[in-house]
Simulated assay, not measured.
Amino acid sequence: MSYVENLRRDYGDFKVEIPQWEILDEGVTVLWGPSGSGKTSVFRVLLGLEACPSMKWSFQGVDLAKLKTPQKKLGVVFQTLDLFPHMTAKENILFAARARKVSEEKSRNRLKELASILKMESFLERPASVLSGGERQRVAIARAIMGEPRLLLLDEPFSALDQELREESRRLLKQVIEVEKIPTLLVTHDQKDVDMLANKVSTIRNGKIVEEVRLS
Rank of each mutant, 00 (worst) to 15 (best):
E105Q: 11
Q60E: 11
M1F: 08
H189I: 11
N199P: 00
S122D: 15
L67A: 14
V30I: 15
L165R: 07
I209F: 06
G12I: 08
K90W: 11
S116E: 15
R170I: 02
T188S: 14
N109M: 04
S122E: 15
S37A: 08
F43T: 14
I18T: 04
P70Q: 11
F43R: 05
R136Q: 07
V62D: 01
D193T: 03
S122C: 06
K200M: 07
L67W: 08
L154S: 02
N206H: 12
G36Q: 06
T188L: 10
A128W: 00
T40E: 02
G36I: 07
G36N: 05
M146S: 08
S2Y: 01
L81S: 13
N206M: 09
M120D: 02
P85L: 04
K112V: 04
P127L: 04
K192E: 08
R8N: 04
A160N: 10
A115V: 12
R143S: 00
G133Y: 13
L186S: 05
Q79R: 02
L46D: 04
K72V: 05
L64Q: 01
T184F: 06
G207R: 01
L67S: 09
V16M: 07
S129I: 08
A115C: 15
G38C: 09
K56F: 01
I177D: 01
E26D: 12
H86E: 07
T203M: 14
F158K: 01
L131E: 05
I23C: 12
S2P: 11
L64D: 00
E105R: 02
R98S: 09
V176Q: 10
R126I: 10
P149V: 10
G12Q: 12
I145E: 03
R150S: 09
L47Q: 06
S54V: 07
E121V: 06
W57H: 15
P183H: 14
Q175I: 02
W57A: 01
L81D: 02
P157Q: 04
E50V: 11
N199H: 11
M87C: 08
V62K: 01
V130E: 13
I204L: 12
P53K: 10
K200Y: 03
T184N: 12
F84C: 07
V62I: 09
L74R: 02
I182E: 02
D82S: 07
L64P: 00
L197C: 03
V201S: 12
L151D: 04
S41F: 02
M196A: 13
L83Y: 07
R150K: 11
N206T: 08
K192P: 01
E212Y: 10
D25W: 04
L165K: 13
I145Y: 12
E105D: 08
I182K: 13
E167S: 06
W21H: 14
R44F: 15
K56Y: 10
S103N: 11
Y11N: 12
D13V: 10
A142G: 07
D155G: 11
M196S: 04
D155E: 05
K119I: 02
L118T: 01
W32F: 15
V213Q: 12
I145W: 00
L114H: 00
W21M: 14
P157A: 07
L124Y: 06
E164L: 10
W32E: 03
H189P: 07
Q60H: 14
V4S: 11
G75C: 04
L47G: 12
